[in-house]
């Protein structure tokens, strides 16, 4: 028996919008720790890891570890039927091949339940080792989204370089080149407007902008994004989900032949 009640149901709606174009089908894993997901895109270039900790739910009952295979496009269709202020409850019985999403309006005058068929998904869980990163950049998520969108109108790939001067995003395409440099800036009104660069050593890596743009669909989940870079590792683009956990996107770099 599984019953997870999320007062801020809009979080789950935003999570689905953030990942449904990257991943088609995925197993949601439910344990005492929380509601989580790890999935790769179909070409095995990117990986998404989601954690919504059990403490973040108003009610969290998960009698035994459960893995529920869902088509994310279908799940998104169902969650779009929930109002932004609705409380969402996820329910499943042991051994059932369906999951129920219950939507309650804030004043309890409307209650809806949507039952979705589950699917068997053969997915391999990958071990993600703890790593020391050469550079970690925290910046406003809207700024990062803007840069990725702007650069993708010029080129297909972005070179992200971190030096003492700041973080530089560069691209080149048929019509020309573009460089955007963001310097560390902590003299801002609100902490989420800051750009903070922690650099152990300079690093420069190349990534496909198509994926970066897909990751920025998580922007509504968090005012800031944290980008971790190391020369022999996938980049990590992390959006913290307030009080609950995170959504992390890992993207393998492109390398020169």
């Amino acid at each position: 028996m599984l019953e997870l009640r999320l007062v801020q149901g809009s979080l789950l709606k935003k999570v689905l919008e953030a990942i449904k174009d990257l991943v088609n089908d995925a197993n949601f894993d439910c344990s005492a720790t929380g509601f989580s997901l790890q999935a790769m895109d179909s070409s095995h270039v990117a990986l998404v890891a989601l954690l919504l900790r059990s403490e973040g739910f108003e009610h969290y009952r998960c009698d035994r570890n459960l893995s529920m295979g869902m088509n994310l496009n279908n799940m998104s269709k169902m969650l779009k039927c929930a109002g932004n202020d609705d409380i969402i409850t996820i329910k499943a019985d042991d051994g059932s091949d369906t999951v129920t999403f219950m939507f309650e309006s804030p004043n309890q005058d409307k209650i809806a339940d949507f039952e979705m068929k589950l699917m068997d998904i053969d997915s391999e869980h990958l071990g993600i080792p703890e790593a020391e990163y050469q550079a970690i950049v925290r910046m406003p998520s809207s700024e990062f989204a803007r840069i990725c969108k702007d650069l993708s109108s010029i080129g297909d790939t972005v070179v992200i370089s971190v030096t003492k001067e700041g973080v530089k995003f560069s691209t080149r395409g048929d019509i020309g080149t573009a460089n955007v440099v963001c310097r560390q800036n902590t003299t801002v009104d609100k902490p989420e407007e800051a750009t903070v660069i922690e650099m152990q050593e300079p690093v420069s890596l190349t990534f496909a902008l198509r994926y970066m743009n897909s990751f920025t669909k998580a922007t509504p989940l968090s005012g800031t994004v944290t980008i971790s870079l190391s020369s022999d590792l996938p980049i990590v683009v992390e959006y913290k989900i307030a009080e609950m956990g995170y959504i992390r996107f890992y993207l393998a770099p492109k390398i020169e032949d």
Binding site: M40, G127, A208, P234, Y250, K254
Partner: peptide, 14 residues
């Protein structure tokens, strides 16, 4: 020319 690496060349199946 650049080549796209796979995520599977960094993370192993657990």
């Amino acid at each position: 020319n650049s080549r796209q690496k796979s995520i599977l060349s960094f993370f192993q199946k657990s």
